[in-house]
Design a protein around this nucleic acid. Structure first.
Length: 556
RNA sequence: GCCCCUGUAGCUCAGUGGAUAGAGCACCAGCCUCCGGAGCUGGGGGCCCGGGUUCGAGUCCCGGCAGGGGUACCA
């Protein structure tokens, strides 16, 4: 990345200045390279002199001059200028910039990929909706965020595993099984009491009817535990199928669906708890087993095993994280959780520490809640009443691409409004279409070129990129060159919301170029070069959209 | 009460401690003999309040105010 080049140049200059005594020997400082917002300040800028001034007991301008004189030359950089009060501004060489059209094209799908995560395994766990009901919009946001985080990590060289934790154990499953059984019996015309803690959603009435239609009264005979369990298992499998289908519509897929129940059948649960116990973080009180998280900085101790002998969901989580770190040995684990679980974060950090694992290896992404609106009216999301807006409904209304774009464009930790009326009404005006339209326009130009007997993919012919000298052309290419840095930064900060904003900017740069200049029908030398430029823009747009999980339509 | 997240333009949102705070929508005014006008150009408007740290604060710290979430032997 070019940014790394600039950092290298500064580090070299700093070392030389120390060696020849122009600057005092100070401890290492980050060269503080950033992208200035004002284009007059160049492509990159460093405020290192300002930061060093105090410790060096010198004026920032003097330090800047000393460093600038010692900067090694690089072909990418045309100029490095000192600017008050003590910046060093770097400007890319225009001809070098345009040569990069060829680089982008030859790297193709790999353009934007990095190696910062090479050799590191990371697990991203997200969605993990209880298999007791459909995925609603709030879950959809977490799904989109989680999948995009996994995508940018993979693009940065990490070995990524995408996982869905299936809560198929515990008391809520019992309630679900009984609910399914009751709806099933009701569908058969039997008198069945609905459990008070049951799931009242209409989707279970449908499921009950469906199961009744398929299985008749096979599970209706004895109202014993067995038939409840059997029909319940079938119901859960159906729920999971529909959850998987809903998520696939928005390009969310998993490497593994991890069963909570398996933790109890394969011995993980016992191993995990005995490790916490042998490390001295359990205590028996009032007939229950507690995790003494307060010793590790948690707010309060928590129950692991109830007085009844049944483990809490928290005990499952300990076993699950034991498996993540000590069983499967991921270097990093990222949990994308909804805001309604935020109270659980510090406890899980404490648990990981209690297992003897560095808690820094566990990170949480807090995905804030989605407020759903239809115009002025706020739509309440409640599983109890069954009055829920499902992800599936939203996707049907606004389409998968718009759904992903909107969920991705807002940072995870701020609450967002999702106005269904607006999203639907303004669909043609959407940023989504703006970006995809840029891609379609490029595809159209390439089609026209082929019709006119020019093969854009013919790499045997030399292209003279010096033919690209227009401002809009350079601006477009500059924007493309930022892409690897956007990906890297999204991965480093686990902030995928930069991607849609970048894609929008890139589309703008292309639309601007497109309206100012013609590609086809110019002098052959110019047409050749512009065709490649447009093609390269298409490559970067496609790479960006792919990371976002959005489609790349060649025609709209 | 305590803990967490958020307060930036009329609305929805960006903004790795840097140099004149950006988009979209909405509003107003312009641009099609030419590769797709789902496009382009221009305009008005903004950092919740008060302290502090810093050469420099929308960004960090403290205290308010406001909105949301959490605070179970539920998940």
């Amino acid at each position: 990345m070019i940014r790394d080049t600039v950092i290298e140049m500064l580090s070299d200059a700093l070392r030389r200045a120390r060696e020849d005594g122009a600057l005092p020997p100070l401890e290492y400082q980050d060269p503080a390279v950033e992208r200035p917002q004002n284009p007059e300040h160049g492509d990159y800028a460093s405020s290192l002199p300002l930061k060093m001034a105090r410790a060096a007991r010198m004026s920032p301008m003097a330090i800047a001059d000393i460093l600038r004189e010692r900067l090694p030359m690089r072909e990418e950089i045309a100029a490095a200028a000192v600017a008050p009060p003590g910046f060093i501004n770097f400007t890319l060489d225009t001809r070098w910039i345009m040569q990069q059209v060829g680089t982008v094209l030859s790297e193709g799908n790999d353009f934007g990929r990095g190696r910062s995560g090479a050799g590191v395994s990371v697990q991203v766990e997200f969605v993990s909706v209880n298999p007791t009901g459909p995925v609603h919009v709030g879950h959809g946001r977490g799904a989109v965020q989680g999948s995009a985080i996994a995508n940018v990590l993979a693009a940065s060289g990490y070995s990524v595993q995408r996982e869905y934790y299936v809560n198929d154990a515990g008391s809520q499953m019992d309630a679900f099984f009984q609910s399914v059984h009751a709806r099933y019996l009701q569908a058969l015309g039997r008198d069945a009491a609905f459990p008070s803690e049951g799931y009242h959603g209409a989707y279970l009435v449908e499921l009950g009817a469906q199961l009744a239609g398929e299985y008749g009264d096979r599970f209706a005979g004895a109202a014993g535990e067995e038939s409840v369990r059997e029909i319940g298992e079938i119901g859960m499998a159906r729920m999971l199928d529909s959850i998987r289908e809903d998520l696939e519509r928005i390009d969310v897929r998993f490497d593994r669906w991890f069963s909570e129940r398996s933790l109890f059948t394969d011995g993980t649960y016992e191993q995990a708890l005995s490790r916490v116990e042998s490390n001295g973080y359990t205590a028996e009180r009032e007939g229950a087993v507690w995790f003494t998280g307060t010793e590790l900085g948690d707010e309060r101790d928590s129950v692991l095993v109830r007085r009844t002998g049944a483990p809490t969901y928290f005990a499952s989580d300990i076993a699950y994280h034991y498996d993540k770190f000590l069983g499967r040995g991921y270097d990093r684990v990222i949990n994308v959780w909804g805001a309604d679980h935020q109270g659980h974060f510090p406890r899980m950090k404490a648990v990981v520490a209690a297992l003897g694992v560095d808690p820094e290896r566990l990170q949480f992404i807090l995905v804030q809640l989605v407020t759903l609106r239809r115009g002025e009216e706020i739509v309440r999301v409640s599983k109890r009443t069954g009055d829920i807006i499902t992800l599936s409904e939203v996707v049907s209304e606004v389409g998968p691409d718009a759904c992903r774009y909107f969920f991705l464009a807002r940072s995870a930790d701020s609450q967002m409004d999702f106005d269904l009326d607006l999203a639907r009404k303004e669909a043609p005006d959407n940023p989504v279409y703006y970006i995809q339209y840029a891609f379609a326009r490029i595809a159209s130009i390439l089609r026209n070129a082929r019709d006119g007997g020019i093969d854009p993919d013919d790499t045997t012919e030399d292209v003279d990129y010096d033919a690209l000298t227009e401002e809009a052309e350079i601006r477009l290419m500059r924007t493309m060159l930022r892409f690897p840095e956007v990906v890297e930064s999204a991965a480093r900060n686990l902030e995928p919301h930069h991607l849609p904003h970048y894609a929008y900017e890139l589309a703008t740069a292309f639309h601007d170029f497109y309206t100012r200049h013609r590609v086809l029908g110019e002098a052959p030398r110019v047409t050749r070069a512009r065709l490649r430029l447009a093609q390269a823009a298409g490559v970067v747009l496609r790479n960006a959209l792919t990371l976002m999980g959005m489609s790349t339509p060649e025609q709209m």
